[in-house]
Amino acid sequence: MLSIQNVKLQFGSLPVLDNVCYCFHKNQVYTLSGGNGAGKTTLFNVISGFLKPNSGDILFQNRNITKLPPYRINRIGIGRTFQDLRLAMHLTAIENVLLASSHKMFEHYTEEHLEKAHHILNRVSLEDKANACAGEISYGQQKLLTLACLLANNAELLLIDEPVAGIDKSNLMKIVDLVSELKAEGKTIIQIEHHPDYIVATNDVLIKMENGKIIC
């Protein structure tokens, strides 16, 4: 589904990704592990188009996406979350989901759009927070809202950056259940996470990174 071919990235003289090669297959949950500076989030940034490699290629469903901008990569089926959440904190939960599902600026939302957004919020146990501002709900609920925004894209490949870092057990279990559901629906997930119980509950393939390289 996704092929990383000899990808190299360096900032000045500092190598950040060092000849990374890997093939990700459909309908699997992959977990990237490794310490700070291993290259995990940088690899996400390269796959999703926020950084361009110095060399190498990225193929998604046999299409070379290496030089595409992030919005085009998103539209062809790759969605992602961020460690810093990137929610519109002054907007309500449902407005965040609607914004994530929109492909046009100032799009007019129909009843169908609203129904879909409410359905997504229900999936992540946030239906009762639909009209609450994102900045007013708990951190764990904000994590769930980022996943709701990810679902609004209806992407086939989901890049999830530290989904359960810093959240309580109740919300962690909700995310475990959601990831299991998404896999059952045929989604492919690549996640960065360190929480051992979460990894055991969700992971199919563990990928270790060190110094910008995949070591196993």
Rank of each mutant, 00 (worst) to 15 (best):
residue 6 N to V: 01
residue 6 N to Y: 03
residue 10 Q to A: 11
residue 13 S to Y: 01
residue 19 N to G: 05
residue 19 N to I: 08
residue 22 Y to I: 08
residue 27 N to D: 11
residue 29 V to D: 10
residue 29 V to G: 01
residue 30 Y to V: 05
residue 32 L to M: 12
residue 33 S to T: 15
residue 33 S to K: 13
residue 39 G to T: 05
residue 41 T to K: 12
residue 44 F to R: 08
residue 47 I to W: 03
residue 47 I to C: 01
residue 58 I to M: 14
residue 61 Q to K: 14
residue 65 I to D: 10
residue 67 K to Y: 15
residue 70 P to C: 13
residue 75 R to F: 00
residue 75 R to D: 09
residue 80 R to M: 00
residue 80 R to G: 12
residue 81 T to L: 11
residue 83 Q to I: 15
residue 84 D to W: 02
residue 85 L to E: 04
residue 88 A to N: 07
residue 89 M to A: 03
residue 90 H to P: 02
residue 90 H to C: 03
residue 93 A to N: 09
residue 94 I to N: 06
residue 94 I to K: 05
residue 95 E to G: 13
residue 97 V to T: 00
residue 97 V to S: 02
residue 98 L to V: 04
residue 98 L to T: 07
residue 101 S to Y: 00
residue 106 F to E: 05
residue 106 F to W: 06
residue 107 E to Y: 01
residue 109 Y to Q: 12
residue 109 Y to S: 10
residue 110 T to C: 04
residue 112 E to Q: 04
residue 114 L to F: 00
residue 115 E to R: 04
residue 117 A to K: 02
residue 121 L to W: 08
residue 121 L to T: 05
residue 121 L to Y: 04
residue 123 R to G: 01
residue 123 R to Q: 07
residue 124 V to G: 12
residue 126 L to S: 14
residue 126 L to F: 09
residue 129 K to L: 15
residue 129 K to M: 15
residue 131 N to D: 07
residue 133 C to N: 07
